[in-house]
Design a binder for these strands. Structure first.
Lengths: 240, 240
DNA sequence: CATCGCTAGGTTGTCTGACAACAGGAGGCA
DNA sequence: TGCCTCCTGTTGTCAGACAACCTAGCGATG
């Protein structure tokens, strides 16, 4: 193990568990959660740690905390569809919706970066990149098309094209390029840029253009994913 | 002033200031912020308060905190376009982009809720609602069309249709229905549902369907806003 | 010279205990 | 009935301490 940081933090563990319980519907909307002292006792941690975890859950809009009253579950606990706050692989999202994910690669190649990709990844134009293109399915039905670009130097020297499979995050993790955040631009689009002709060019797509960064702010991947309108629900909780 | 809660919290004040400084570019991407002790001294608060503020800034993806190293600004500090994490009025977003916002109302009326609206707002079908429809402009150019629906009972008894103006949030605030969070669904759409014929029906739009809630989880408004693709940039920072 | 291991110092993570600020309910009172 | 005060439970903030962690520098080792 490479001693991944961030995953072992106590407050993170508590926050993840609280998030899971909230999404499982353990507290219905507007229902009050146990007090901070009680949660601290339950998890066997200090109140300070519980508070750190609660602030994380608050920030995602799953709860609202009121001074002198307590912490309350919000209606957002119902919104278990694709939560844009959370950075997870598309496959993981599909699994969470109790559907069977799949993907078939159309392209896996090392080539020179386009100007667009070089700009997004902060590379010199023409630098070598790994380019993958694939269809993403849920229960065998195509829900999205995706193009992914990873700088060659992010991957290990002895990297083998034939071993590419699974999700983008899985590939990055395997090479020690753990993606912790992403800058995402959202567009409406038709399908005429996808590029291999099976898709309906006039159909409507929600296009997510994402640059992924690791903990040190290095751009480790650029992806463009076209989600077929209506087959994928994007939800987002916004907090004032 | 009505003694609004949540705004006076010390940690919130510190977080807001840190966010402002980050977006002003006081720290360039990957640059380290002052340590927690130093920030505490600077703001004249305890380290616990600074940590609460930093967790809020972290959650928005503006910073990354690493155990034993410090807190670092991220590239997201450059992304000052429409930040979907932040719940602010469209007008406020346009102002932040140094453009002149405007709006012209097409419809202001009390009518019965449609089934769709009643479901979103948790009303009985046919309950009275305030319905507004308007165009939103930046420097005189139309950037979006918006439909907003507010339950009649949310507004004061002596409410006067003629006084409606300004933003959705302004109207809600004036009636004590302070919207603190929103559940947002993102779609790609054409313009054929907008309804008054000036818009291009075949153009591409990013459609945001939002249900707004107050601190007590009461649905106070339902809005559907069609943003003309290309005239409005939606950015979002996602955190693992 | 290159490499390894150790140490020192600075940083964030967690703990403990305490008090302040706030909201709501119970009860007394006019 | 209506108003006021007190009480209780909750979250917000404070202070100080120690643990866990990372980096840089240094010396020993080959």
């Amino acid at each position: 193990m490479s001693g991944r940081s961030g995953i072992a933090k106590l407050s993170r563990t508590v926050a993840d568990d609280l998030r899971r319980r909230l999404e499982d519907g353990e507290w219905s909307p507007s229902e009050r959660l146990p007090g901070e002292h009680e949660l601290a006792a339950h998890y066997g941690v200090s109140r300070a740690t519980v508070r750190t975890a609660l602030r994380a859950v608050d920030a995602r809009g799953l709860t609202v905390t009121l001074h002198g009253l307590g912490t309350f579950a919000t209606v957002a606990t119902r919104a278990v569809a694709a939560d844009l706050h959370r950075l997870e692989s598309i496959s993981a999202t599909i699994v969470r919706l109790d559907r069977q994910p799949g993907a078939s690669f159309r392209t896996i190649a090392i080539r020179d970066a386009t100007a667009r990709e070089a700009a997004a990844l902060d590379l010199v134009s023409g630098a070598p990149v790994l380019s993958t293109r694939r269809e993403i399915t849920a229960d065998g039905e195509i829900v999205a098309y995706s193009h992914e670009t990873i700088p060659r130097h992010v991957l290990a020297e002895d990297f083998d094209l034939l071993t590419v499979s699974g999700s983008l995050f899985g590939l990055l993790d395997a090479h020690g390029a753990y993606a912790t955040s992403a800058l995402t631009a959202i567009h409406a689009s038709t399908g005429d840029e996808i590029g291999w002709g099976d898709e309906a060019p006039d159909a409507l797509y929600v296009l997510l253009e994402q640059t992924h960064f690791d903990a040190k702010n290095r751009a480790v991947a650029f992806s463009r994913t076209w989600f077929i309108e209506g087959r994928f629900q994007f939800n987002l909780v916004r907090v004032r």
